[in-house]
């Protein structure tokens, strides 16, 4: 059984009198431990798919089933709790809280757990070590480079040990060298830590790090193929 299953999903936004069909009867299955790159032109519905998988948005019709759980059946409160336990988010612009240090940014999702203060701190430091920033725990986001901020964001995404990482253009704001480091890190998380990763990207080189590439156009799946060069 697939870990993530989008079943005949449609999504329509209404802006005033205008209706915008973003996704039309889209079905997509993502296997456990897959690393999927979602590609396609702007407005093709990539981010919408990501939002639906992450439980940030609801489909107009159809259903999203993740690890056997139908997201449309969950109340907002339960959906929030489900997100905290199952999904890690990585954004293009990092979205770290500027008032908090790297370590405290990473601890933030752990406030929703029953872990004690010492355990939260230890888990945050472990996550920082995984992303290679163990020596930057006391730095605030403004004291870190873009690549380092994205590493902290990834550490925050994995600290609660979710099974799925959804990444919205994680290298979109980085130079090539930093982008490569981030992609290598995601690949490591996928291969060593068995995280299922769904990544939206415009960059074919970034997509080369994935195991599967999915192309979307006008809200419909056009191609789904394994990436032969995935290392």
């Amino acid at each position: 059984m697939s870990l993530v299953s989008l079943q005949s999903v449609s999504k329509t936004y209404t802006k005033g009198r205008e209706r915008v069909d973003v996704l039309s009867d889209l079905s997509l299955d993502i296997e456990k431990n897959d690393f999927v790159a979602l590609m396609g032109p702007s407005g093709s519905g990539k981010t919408t798919v990501l939002n639906l998988i992450g439980g940030l948005d609801h489909p107009t019709s159809g259903d999203v089933v993740v690890d056997g759980a139908s997201l449309k059946s969950l109340s907002p409160g339960k959906l929030a709790r489900w997100r905290s336990q199952n999904i890690g988010f990585v954004f293009q612009f990092y979205n770290l809280l500027p008032a908090l240090t790297a370590q405290r940014n990473i601890e933030l999702p752990l406030l929703l757990t029953k872990l004690r203060g010492k355990e939260r701190k230890q888990n945050a430091l472990t996550a920082l070590d995984i992303v290679g920033l163990g020596d930057r725990s006391k730095h605030k986001p403004s004291q870190l480079s873009g690549g380092q901020q994205q590493r902290v964001a990834i550490a925050r995404a994995i600290v609660a040990d979710p099974s799925i990482l959804v990444c919205d253009e994680p290298t979109g704001d980085l130079d090539r060298a930093n982008a490569e480091e981030i992609l290598d890190l995601l690949q490591t998380l996928n291969q060593k830590h068995e995280k299922t990763i769904v990544m939206v990207t415009h960059d074919p080189k970034a997509a080369d790090h994935a195991k599967t590439t999915v192309y979307l156009d006008k809200g419909q799946l056009t191609v789904q193929e394994p990436v032969s060069s995935a290392s």
Binding site: G54, L56, A80, R81, W82, R83, N95, L108, L112, A160
Partner: peptide
């Protein structure tokens, strides 16, 4: 607002 949206994304409920 973006920080609050991120908090909700991370699993903090509306309430």
């Amino acid at each position: 607002i973006p920080e609050l949206a991120v908090m909700k994304t991370l699993g903090f409920s509306n309430s």
